[in-house]
Simulated assay, not measured.
Amino acid sequence: MTENDISRVVIGLAIEVHKALGPGLLESTYKECLFYKINKHGLFVEKEKPMPVIFEEIKLDCGYRVDLLVEKKLIIELKSVESLSVIHLAQTLTYLKLGNYKLGLLINFNEVLLRNGIRRVINNL
């Protein structure tokens, strides 16, 4: 599956989670539920995947963690905030660059209509 194929599946699953739970819960709740749905769907998913920083020849564990990594290709960064900001987009793009990934989804579950809280983030390698 390509990154785009995976993202379509994940968006559909995120919408299912949002329809069941609605907005207003903690980010960790949505993360656990989406992790469960992705895994149940048969995709390989990692939760709280460490994202080290490589500086020159050293690898630094600075505590960065990607919320979800699907099929070792798609980063998912989850939020439950009033509105997404530029810093949320920057964070997702930084994770893409650190891991050398092409595509990420930034999803804000604190929206009445989840579609309004989904942003595709592309790393122009």
Results as ranks from 00 to 15, higher is better:
105 L>K: 10
58 I>Q: 06
58 I>F: 09
103 L>A: 02
89 L>A: 04
77 E>D: 10
85 S>T: 09
78 L>Y: 05
57 E>T: 05
104 G>D: 12
103 L>K: 15
66 V>R: 05
78 L>M: 07
65 R>A: 06
83 S>M: 10
67 D>Y: 06
107 I>S: 11
91 Q>R: 15
87 I>D: 14
73 K>S: 13
102 K>A: 07
58 I>Y: 02
83 S>D: 09
76 I>T: 05
74 L>N: 01
71 E>V: 01
76 I>C: 09
69 L>P: 08
93 L>Q: 14
108 N>T: 13
66 V>E: 09
64 Y>R: 11
94 T>L: 14
88 H>N: 15
77 E>M: 07
54 I>S: 02
95 Y>K: 13
52 P>G: 08
103 L>F: 03
96 L>G: 09
108 N>Q: 14
58 I>D: 00
77 E>W: 07
101 Y>F: 15
87 I>S: 15
109 F>I: 04
55 F>D: 02
79 K>M: 08
53 V>G: 06
94 T>W: 07
101 Y>K: 15
104 G>P: 12
92 T>G: 10
109 F>S: 09
98 L>I: 05
73 K>T: 02
83 S>N: 15
95 Y>W: 11
84 L>S: 03
90 A>P: 07
93 L>K: 14
54 I>N: 10
59 K>A: 01
58 I>A: 06
95 Y>T: 03
78 L>I: 08
105 L>H: 11
83 S>F: 06
57 E>V: 00
88 H>E: 14
52 P>M: 01
52 P>H: 08
62 C>G: 02
91 Q>M: 08
76 I>N: 01
99 G>P: 02
56 E>A: 01
72 K>M: 08
71 E>A: 03
89 L>I: 05
85 S>K: 14
64 Y>N: 07
84 L>W: 14
70 V>I: 12
98 L>M: 11
100 N>H: 14
77 E>F: 03
67 D>Q: 09
92 T>K: 14
65 R>W: 12
70 V>T: 06
88 H>V: 02
92 T>M: 14
55 F>G: 00
53 V>W: 14
82 E>T: 05
52 P>E: 12
76 I>A: 09
56 E>N: 07
104 G>V: 04
53 V>I: 15
93 L>H: 09
87 I>G: 06
57 E>A: 02
100 N>T: 06
101 Y>M: 13
59 K>R: 14
99 G>I: 01
78 L>W: 02
68 L>Q: 08
53 V>R: 12
88 H>L: 04
91 Q>G: 03
99 G>E: 15
66 V>D: 06
55 F>L: 11
77 E>I: 02
87 I>C: 04
68 L>R: 08
99 G>K: 15
86 V>T: 12
80 S>E: 07
101 Y>I: 09
58 I>P: 00
81 V>H: 06
96 L>M: 10
98 L>F: 10
68 L>Y: 03
78 L>F: 06
71 E>I: 01
97 K>W: 05
74 L>H: 02
